[in-house]
Design a protein around this nucleic acid. Structure first.
Lengths: 177, 177
DNA sequence: GGCCTTCTTGCGTCCTGGTCGCATCAGGCT
DNA sequence: AGCCTGATGCGACCAGGACGCAAGAAGGCC
């Protein structure tokens, strides 16, 4: 398996450890273009928004690794550094960031939605038995996209909702032909 | 559009009107094999289950038309004839019927799951803007299924979760190429 | 620096979709 | 008819998320 990644083994770079709780260069006027976090923050500011510490922390979590995280997981990561940040603040900021086109959310089956950077465009295959998630580049869906457009005039979006099924380990042998 | 069907225009044969509240032949020992409702009920009985009026009513709703209905809609339809049937009874019976392989549920995007007969095997394309749902026969997904199996050993199930996107009316012209 | 406006936040409440525990009811075998 | 057990109604509960409100803070302006 080359592209496969399971839900459990997500390489979880510990967010707090990198800067050990003390403010990084970000606070004293970093040039936009250097740090993606600060870049987004100044985009936010340019739109009349405010730069707050919870937003900065949330963005650091999102840019920290490419993982797919639920709002709750992100809240936990943020709260590791700022315990008072409320879950609803996370939801509101994720909404805002989605409106800005920085992040997108995806529904990987039952359970909560997961958020990741909008720059990663891929679809998801999720195993209904074990929850394993496979990220698939969009070209996997090319032929489906074409047929759906031809037959129904329907333009599919393979990113927002996962395609469910059975992974290589859970699929019954006879269904794999 | 030949196969298309929108969420709104579902041909809603009024369930109550067909028998106008009075018990049909079902009660006095109909031979199994005639009425699919009674057939399922005797399957249920054969498995140690009980035949109850709420189950019969629910099954009549399900077999009444091929529509996709939410648990709440089904509850409403059942309650039109038996007002005391509780929503949780509907949920429990739908679970039971799903375990029996009579019905399946599908998630058509956000919002509640919909239930329909297991005999109708098709996938769903759902428009994220207007909610229009298109039923697509499984062969639409054949090439995706093949590629997913080849690349990832993943066996997709296009029935359980809908593929989201934009219908012919909502898709921006440039994305339809 | 201080002020003022307006955006954000924390908090609690509410909402939807669905599950569960429990006492009661009823199907159906004997 | 009686009994056993499965089914039901009911309310409480749960997860995921949205919302209203008052207090707090960002940051433009002087």
């Amino acid at each position: 398996m080359s592209l496969g990644r399971t839900g459990g083994e997500a390489q979880e770079r510990p967010l707090a450890a990198t800067t050990a709780g003390e403010p990084i260069a970000a606070d004293r006027g970093v040039l936009p273009g250097e740090d993606p976090v600060e870049e987004v923050l100044s985009l936010l500011r340019a739109r009349g928004g405010r730069v707050t510490s919870s937003r900065r922390l949330l963005l650091r979590c999102l840019f920290g690794d490419g993982a797919h995280r639920t709002a709750e997981e992100l809240a936990e990561a943020v709260q590791a550094q700022a315990p008072d940040v409320h879950l609803s603040t996370i939801y509101r900021n994720l909404d805002e960031l989605e409106r800005l086109g920085v992040v997108v959310h995806a529904h990987l089956g039952h359970g909560p939605a997961t958020y990741h950077l909008a720059s990663e465009t891929h679809g998801h295959l999720v195993c209904e038995s074990c929850g394993t998630m496979v990220e698939a580049s969009e070209d996997l869906f090319a032929s489906l996209a074409e047929e759906a457009r031809e037959r129904f005039g329907f333009v599919i979006d393979p990113r927002h909702f996962a395609v469910l099924g059975s992974c290589r380990h859970c699929a019954p042998p006879d269904s794999r032909v």
